[in-house]
């Protein structure tokens, strides 16, 4: 069952490359949250019950509900409907995401170490590469935050791949940090949207000498 959600997660990455509407980005982030929930639910039976419940709540509450809800609010505030400002045609983005998926699947085959759960590593690595790519090709700060969240989802999967090395307290702190980061970033998107009347990155280039 874990594989089902992993494959579905990979498909969400393809849809990220395909879609151009901001609304769809938020929706896909929400979907990714549910995929992560599924992955955790079907794979982490062995850990302690408290940790298990904590990670489940993290994925379902924070990743699939609170963050998308908040981003949706930000989107409505800035009246973002459609984003056409990709510097690369979608056609190539799809090829890039497919290549990164293939690469990371074969890389995890090559790793095959008993310290890493390579099944999570597959999509985790692809997700991180694609998140960085997503940030590079978009010219809108809202999409940049979406790309950041794709990277964060990738790191979450990577931490599953590594196993529960980190103590729960630190995990909790990291989660709070990310959440705070997204909230602060969202607030700043709103401020930029108010001050510059748009969220395009081109305007943010006055600090040069």
């Amino acid at each position: 069952m874990t594989y089902l959600f992993i494959i579905l997660y990979a498909i969400t990455l393809i849809y990220f490359a395909l879609s151009e509407r901001v609304k769809k980005f938020v929706w896909l982030l929400c979907m990714q949250g549910f995929m992560l929930f599924g992955i955790v639910f079907f794979s982490l039976h062995k850990i302690e019950i408290f940790d298990f419940i904590f990670i489940l709540t993290e994925t379902i509450l924070v990743k699939s509900l609170i963050v998308p809800w908040f981003l949706n609010k930000v989107r409505k505030h800035n009246q973002l409907k459609r984003i056409q400002e990709t510097s690369v045609p979608v056609f190539f983005s799809i090829i890039v995401v497919v290549l990164s998926l293939i690469f990371s699947f074969f890389l995890s085959n090559f790793l095959n170490s008993n310290q890493i759960h390579t099944k999570y590593f597959t999509v985790a690595f692809a997700s991180i590469i694609f998140g960085i790519y997503f940030i590079i090709i978009h010219k809108n700060i809202f999409s940049h935050v979406v790309g950041y969240l794709i990277i964060e989802n990738g790191t979450f999967l990577l931490s599953l791949a590594v196993g529960s090395v980190m103590p729960m307290m630190v995990n909790l702190a990291i989660l709070l940090d990310v959440l705070m980061g997204v909230l602060v970033l969202g607030v700043f998107i709103n401020r930029i949207g108010d001050a510059f009347e748009s969220t395009k990155i081109d305007q943010l280039s006055s600090l040069k000498d």
């Binding site: 594989y3 494959i7 990979a10 498909i11 393809i14 490359a17 799809i94 995401v97 497919v98 998926l101 293939i102 699947f105």
Partner: peptide, 10 residues
């Protein structure tokens, strides 16, 4: 094609 590649990986 991208989705078929995911099927292929599966």
């Amino acid at each position: 094609s991208a989705i078929s590649i995911v099927v292929f990986l599966t």
